[in-house]
Simulated scan of single mutants.
Amino acid sequence: MKNLQETDYPAYYSNYINQVENSDCIDALEESMNDFVNFIENIVPAEKYEYRYQPEKWSIKEIVQHIIDAERIFAYRALRFARFDKTPLSSFEENDYVDVCAADKREMSDLLQEFLLVRKSTIKMFESFSDEMISNKGIASGGEVKVLAIGFIISGHAIHHQKVIKERYLKN
């Protein structure tokens, strides 16, 4: 499956990797990008973008911003490890990022444009990696992860949040 072994990533990323049906990393990145944008653009009415199913939960706009922020961080990790940088990288506190992102003050079209730019950049970066680079590993958030696995984590992360939005935000 996806040319990955269980030793290629920490177990806590299994949920994201298992969301991805496509076995090609680049195709998975493109497919999840297109599916996610199409899904978000078809949410009506637009007021739903700021809906929270519980007061302490993120809005849909904040989820989109979170996906963008997380992708930038994951892509940075992939770049470092693909370039054989062995420096362990720390984790990030996603709630702290969302608390200050001001996503609800932005237009969804602006957030989606940013998502597309970030994802297209991620795709170009992964396309540039040699077989050796894509197979390299590094330490992030206390666990060893292969560059290839990071590509599937990025795809699966967007798919995961798309499912959360469907299940928890759009039932009303």
Rank of each mutant, 00 (worst) to 15 (best):
K86I: 10
E93W: 02
P45G: 12
E107Y: 08
V37R: 01
I60G: 02
H160Y: 14
Y53S: 02
I73Y: 01
D69N: 06
Y51I: 07
D85S: 11
F39G: 02
F39A: 05
A28P: 00
A28V: 07
I17R: 02
P55S: 08
C101H: 03
N15L: 08
S109C: 09
N22V: 07
E30A: 06
F126S: 09
N38S: 14
R52C: 09
M33G: 06
N172H: 09
H161V: 04
G143N: 12
E127F: 05
M33I: 07
D69Y: 02
K57T: 13
N172D: 12
D96C: 10
K105L: 13
V20R: 04
M108I: 12
N95V: 14
R83G: 05
V164C: 01
G143P: 00
S91D: 08
A103N: 11
D131T: 12
D35P: 00
S128H: 01
G142T: 08
I67A: 00
S128F: 13
Q5D: 13
K2W: 10
N95P: 05
I26D: 06
S121V: 08
E62G: 14
E71V: 03
V20E: 10
D35S: 15
E114N: 03
D104P: 00
R168I: 02
Q162H: 11
Q54W: 10
H157L: 09
S91G: 15
L111Y: 05
E144H: 12
I43K: 05
P45T: 13
S59W: 03
L148M: 10
L89F: 07
F115Y: 15
